[in-house]
Amino acid sequence: MSIELEKQIQELQKKVESLEKGTKDQLSMVVFSGDLDKILAAMIISTGATAMDTKVKLFFTFWAISALRDPKKKAKGKNFMEKMFGMMLPRGMRKIKLSKMNMAGMGTSMIKGIMKKHKVASIEELFAIAAELGVEINICEMSMNLMGFKKEEMIDYPNLKICGVATFLADASESKIQLFI
């Protein structure tokens, strides 16, 4: 092989390395909405992505955090406002509602029935699959505090982390795909 060619190959290898370092085969998603349909979409995309060997990092913020509450767990030391918020917001993923056609809960239970008929995984199943496949869940600390939630009342999920906006930005900047739901 000529020296010229070898040089060119080395340069190309360096370029490829820097490109690979720039963005990973990774998906970063902000899950903002607390609506059942939107969180279902987020979880279907996430589990699908892991099937394609794409690493998934979810950043749960604002209303979406309600879905991560464990109805069996209770947190102590809440003030009046935090208790009020806790009462008014849905207690976990079983309680979240459709963004449209909820019709006082009728629409939501109807869609759950239709999903079962079509053998679509339920939201609980999707979270279990996501845990098994290594989908990472990060919770935004600031909005968790605003809603008056505590880490102790969140679901059991492997490596559930509490973080800030910098974690999302750092993850997103090295992800090929970024989404906001």
């Binding site: 699908g48 892991t50 099937a51 053998k119 995984a121």
Partner: peptide, 13 residues
């Protein structure tokens, strides 16, 4: 068979 998206994909994986 009988599973809906993303079921077949996850099964294949």
């Amino acid at each position: 068979r009988g599973t809906a998206c993303p079921g077949p994909l996850l099964a294949a994986k």
